[in-house]
Design a protein around this nucleic acid. Sequence first.
RNA 1: GGGCCUGUAGCUCAGCUGGAAGAGCACCUGGCUUUUAACCAGGUGGUCCGGGGUUCGAAUCCCCGCAGGCCCGCCA
Length: 481
Amino acid sequence: MERKDFVYRTELVKKLREEGVEPYPHSAKITHEIGDIVDRSEEFMGKKVAVAGRIYGLRFHGKLAFATLRSNGRDIQGFFRYDVLGEKKYKFLKKYVQRGDFIWLHGEVIRTKRGELSVLADDVRLISKSLYDLPHEWFGIGDVETRYRQRYLDLLLNREPFELFWKRAKIVEEMRRFLWSRGFLEMETPVLQPVYGGANAKPFKTHVNALDRDYYLRISDELYLKRLIVGGYTKVFEISKDFRNEDIDTTHNPEFTMIEAYWAYADYNDMMDLTEEMIKSIAKALGIEKVNFRGKEIDFTKPFRREKMLDLLAKRGITKETDDEEIKTMLEEYNIKLPRYERGLALGKLFERVCEADLHEPVFVIDHPKETTPLCKLHRNDPDLVERFELYVGGMELANGYTELNDPMLQEKFFKDETERRTLGDEEAHQYDADFVEALRWGMPPTGGVGIGVDRLTMLLTGQESIKEVILFPMLAPKEE
RNA sequence: GGGCCUGUAGCUCAGCUGGAAGAGCACCUGGCUUUUAACCAGGUGGUCCGGGGUUCGAAUCCCCGCAGGCCCGCCA
């Protein structure tokens, strides 16, 4: 059974065509965007304009009618008078034009008796017929599933997400502007990779018919951007969609956006400075100082603290003196399973479990045990650690950076260690990337790198606690009919 | 993977101690020359998520399934 509104409106389209009116014309030339007129209304007063937009409200009042027109999130009122518009067009409006339709109208910018900025129409055209009744904005769309599956309805009827995704676009724009201003070049590296790397994660597998080879969707673009540093660039970045074949929850989506930046001759301290300055400049550009997140305030104007991971663990009673047996007991208590006991890995896992959730105000956690990643340079003062940082905000990991490992022989060894972990059953261990080792053998300068989760940054800057709220089309199970 | 919750008109929701499917808005018809959630009068509209069961009778109770949300587990 077809929807009643669809049947009725489809019939109207048919009638329009019978009368020689095309309900979906090719263009509708406007003189101004609605927002421009609203922003500079006094300048436009008394002038003739042509505007277009979707009808959110249509109020017939005998021989008068008022329409709320919206375009790009901005509203202006269309004012139709029988005597100004003429009988034919007025009747057309009444018979064929409904809420949800797009119209074009021409007329003088005025204010009505109630002071509402309006265009007093002397001409009106239907420029796109909607075949469904637009739900009322007053009630909005509340059903979360509808909001995600039909995001356009969410954007059309709920103000908050419309503005939120505008902000997300601004965040990405500011990110680019910031890095461009620092001399970084925006690069594009492969999404389809024969060997995946740069993170601990399960990949999506695909097949390249032309080569008859299995490929992977990237889990990170790290190893390719570093090849570009080998290639001679000193500052590169990429905003990349990465793919990780893992669970979907409030902070994870299988497809997500990451920005990675690599900077030759710099180290992890420089990258922390860069990260902090970038986030603060984005927040400033958006006029954001403090955000309420998970019930607590985050102040983006204060300096980001830097804490050593081992110091944070020590505050929880896990120190150098804690012996391996005690740590193994703790792993069991927290139900953490490692393919094989390695102290450094265990400490990294315990940190996530014990400390992570409490890191609310921005803090760089630095100097991780060396077993936590194979891509990072050993610490200049302690061979058991690496020069790594993770930025935690709101209890989430927001960024991850290193003084990049550029010693090809050590890189080879670390990849071998990962291969061993893989054979022991660690599905997320890194793959051995011989081509990347080859690149390092040609020489990569000392380099600092960082990756920042764009979705999570958007969550933090907008106070949204679910990643689905900041991804336009979050992954959902396909609906079968 | 485990627990809790949700699914009723186009939208927002009520009905849930079993007994004739409802409201507001939207939509349609009529009225109205300053409305803006317009108003007034009348009207149309339902696979009560799907399947099975209990019962004289199920939107309501039971079982299975689907989809979504939250929490936990797992995981960047």
